[in-house]
Design a protein around this nucleic acid. Structure first.
Lengths: 158, 158
DNA sequence: TATTGTTATACTCTATAACTATA
DNA sequence: TATAGTTATAGAGTATAACAATA
């Protein structure tokens, strides 16, 4: 089982033939390379909107779930609550999101997407969709569904 | 198109139904989640050998390509030369790898796996293989091949 | 006591730019 | 001038542990 490796970017290769040993068969290695490449592309084509892939995803979740708390959001996104705090600080500073302490239990922050940013969000989402489309276009519809299914299947159950 | 999300680990969910909007359709999001999960599992089951997934991969490449230079290795692994330096420092401190300045062009470091560590490497590789197998076992052989093919296909050409 | 969220801290991974040495 | 490798620096992303506020 062998795959085509993508071409390095740093410098012209001197032409040495690299022996990749078992590495190309390792799922972890494949995922790291694929994720790094896709994120690099995302930043190259969307860097000017000022949102990282993670920040955009969080923003989308907050917008789709008005009043979601920080713990709920962290759990839904698969990160620790302490990882979430600084990202929310940035989103709040950019006036994209606001925190509202719940009156009936003031331990909780309810999170809201700022309606005034709807136009901005819409532009950003269009750009993200275009980007995703450009990636998805490398696969047929069937292949896209299959990839999503297979990636879902390798996730550990716990 | 919908997928099963994996269960959050942090705390029992209060049961709120999260609206994931378009997120589960985004390849970038899927790859991040999958990679984070697989790496977490790697560290949980292999943390005691003292090698991160990246460090193990580099070690495997050095061992398979005795005398490879740092630029060649960085290119082959898809990282910058400046990212490579500290990892090599750690591998050298652990006596797993040594640098040898080339006599005929002293700008280059040739990298060598330390033969004395063959037993250690063998144990580590067995553990990694077992781990990879446990992940791969979630898919049939056909599915494994298909996943590798599809991930390869979505990599940008440059 | 238990939970939410913040803070302090640390570590990995990543890169760019400036630097050293070598050619 | 150009290249290999190191260093300085920065930033994202991640986590654990301790903490304050609240319940």
């Amino acid at each position: 089982m062998s795959i085509e490796m993508d071409i390095p970017v740093q410098a012209a290769d001197s032409g040495r033939d690299i022996d990749y040993d078992e590495l190309p068969n390792y799922i972890g290695y494949l995922l790291r390379r694929a994720q790094a490449n896709v994120f690099r592309e995302f930043e190259r084509s969307l860097g000017d909107i000022g949102l990282t892939p993670g920040a955009f995803g969080l923003l989308m979740l907050i917008r789709a779930n008005p009043g979601i708390t920080q713990m709920e959001l962290a759990n839904a996104f698969g990160i620790d609550k302490s990882t979430l705090t600084p990202v929310l600080n940035r989103l709040e500073q950019s006036a994209l999101v606001r925190r509202e302490q719940l009156a009936h239990d003031r331990r909780y922050n309810a999170l809201f997407f700022e309606d005034a940013q709807e136009a901005f969000f819409d532009r950003a989402r269009t750009r993200v969709r275009d980007f995703e489309q450009s990636v998805a276009d490398r696969l047929s519809d069937d292949e896209q569904r299959e990839l999503v299914r297979l990636i879902g299947k390798i996730q550990a159950d716990a």
